[in-house]
């Protein structure tokens, strides 16, 4: 089968490549672009470990072909920090609130939470839980993830009145 030319912006960088049409976007990102932050957990769009931010949407990249992302603007966990290395408030908050353990779901979780907070800068706990319901975590029981997202939201809004856990 003929390879297809694709062009996209990934973490602010323009990239071009020839891909087999059946190449899944997650494999393209991880193996061609060597951005191994996003992970593969279930391969059937249930776990969200492969979540990328594509054109302002959270997308499970195990269930998308790289060719479908032609022309897209993509952000991965590797593009979440600022150019000078300053971490995104979510990255700090996940660490502070112990919102991760094995770390496997974390890139997808933070990437998803990033979009959630873009759309809803001040979510309730229930909205956070709904908002991350496409991302499975096997370690944390979500409670500290919810707390981390809330903390990040407060900081991003400059409304933090948070008493960090003792």
């Amino acid at each position: 089968m003929a390879k297809t030319h694709v062009k996209m912006t990934v973490n602010g960088k323009e990239i071009e490549a020839l891909v087999e049409p059946r190449t899944l976007l997650i494999h393209f990102i991880r193996e061609e672009l060597e951005l191994t932050g996003p992970h593969i957990g279930c391969e059937t769009s249930h776990c969200g470990a492969c979540t990328l931010d594509i054109d302002g949407k959270s997308v499970k990249s195990c269930t998308m072909f790289a060719v479908q992302a032609n022309g897209a603007d993509i952000r991965t966990i590797e593009g979440m920090a600022e150019a000078d290395g300053t971490l995104h408030p979510l990255q700090d908050a996940f660490r502070e609130m112990h919102g991760l353990q094995c770390g496997f779901c974390t890139p997808g979780m933070i990437t998803r939470a990033y979009r959630l907070l873009q759309e809803n800068p001040n979510p309730s706990d229930e909205e956070i839980r709904m908002g991350i319901s496409g991302n499975l975590c096997r370690c944390t029981g979500y409670q500290n993830i919810v707390a981390a997202i809330r903390l990040a939201a407060e900081r991003m809004n400059g409304t933090q009145n948070w008493e960090a856990a003792e």
């Binding site: 191994t36 932050g37 593969i40 991965t76 590797e78 971490l87 660490r95 991760l100 770390g103």
Partner: peptide
């Protein structure tokens, strides 16, 4: 706070498939 999280929150973990 966990030492591990610095790499995990930035997508810099190193798992087998990486």
């Amino acid at each position: 706070k966990r030492v591990e999280d610095v790499r995990f929150t930035q997508g810099k973990g190193n798992y087998v498939d990486d």
